[in-house]
């Protein structure tokens, strides 16, 4: 996967301005960055849901921007995406959720489909939950069902959008190990979008740090931890002080408190 000089805006807000990023085949690549830096938008670029205003997005050797709809759908069949909150189809049970992409994209006989789905559910430890509805699952279970669905078509690329958000430590540990295991066992190219530095750093072969519409740093977790770059240090150490401002731009704080109504009068 290769993104070159990508530019993308939403309304008047520039999300990417010259983004360059390369993901090696078979690796786990982490894309990190503060909230609002366009991490989820990057996933939408990679899956062809949005098109950049300028630059190229190449996935599995194909230029996503130039693809027509049937070719784009064919490419998407080779990719799996784990959404932030699972995005399970609420009118289908666990089994049917995992079977959904297979039913829609192939004509596998029912007995084969059943075995395939059970194998994927077993891989995420939820074979016994096949009859449950999404509403009956905990957050971690829903994420694992979504993971089973994402791998059911045996994708070459697996994209994880904030896979650790809202998970308890046990579920988080399970998901971290699953990502690593799937990558090792199936040779899938994995992209993990997250701002959980410790979790994603523990399994990533390479990490990018997004800020200001571009990748400001890239390297292994150890390299990023050792970086002298102020923005990288601030993010990796989780500090409020640094080039990435915690506060949204605003007028002078003290002046704002002194302005306006007569506070003393209002309190009397």
């Amino acid at each position: 996967m290769d993104v070159r000089n990508a530019r993308y805006s939403v309304g008047s807000r520039r999300i990417f301005d010259g983004l360059d990023l390369t993901v090696a085949r078979g690796s786990i690549t982490a894309v990190m960055g503060p909230s609002g830096t366009g991490k989820t938008t990057l996933l939408r670029l990679l899956t062809g849901q949005v098109r950049p205003e300028a630059g190229t997005v190449t996935v599995l050797g194909q230029d996503v921007v130039a693809l027509r709809r049937p070719e784009l759908f064919a490419l998407r069949r080779r990719m799996g995406v784990l959404f932030q909150h699972g995005a399970l189809l609420t009118d289908l049970d666990v089994f049917e959720n995992v079977a959904f992409p297979v039913r829609e994209n192939t004509r596998l006989p029912e007995p084969v489909l059943r075995r395939l789905v059970l194998m994927k559910l077993e891989a995420v430890g939820l074979r016994g939950a096949e009859k449950l509805m999404p509403q009956e699952l905990s957050g971690g279970m829903a994420r694992r069902v979504a993971l089973a669905r994402a791998i059911v078509m045996d994708p070459e690329i697996l994209i994880y959008d904030e896979p650790f958000v809202g998970l308890d430590p046990i579920s988080m540990g399970i998901v971290v190990r699953l990502i690593k295991r799937l990558n090792d066992a199936l040779g899938i190219t994995s992209i993990v979008v997250s701002h959980d530095v410790a979790e994603v750093g523990s399994i990533a072969d390479y990490s990018y740090l997004l800020a200001g519409g571009r990748a400001v740093a890239g390297g292994t977790t150890a390299e990023l931890n050792a970086s002298a770059e102020p923005a990288v240090r601030q993010f990796m150490q989780g500090s409020a002080e640094g080039p990435v401002s915690f506060h949204y731009p605003a007028a002078d704080y003290h002046q704002a408190l002194l302005d306006g109504a007569d506070l003393a009068g209002a309190l009397r």
Binding site: F83, H85, T90
Partner: peptide, 22 residues
């Protein structure tokens, strides 16, 4: 609307399933 809000329609698109059809 809730399917859109919970990314179910986007998930379909990413799974190469056209939500218009399904």
């Amino acid at each position: 609307g809730l399917m859109r809000a919970t990314d179910q329609l986007t998930a379909m698109q990413v799974m190469a399933v056209d939500p218009m059809r399904h």
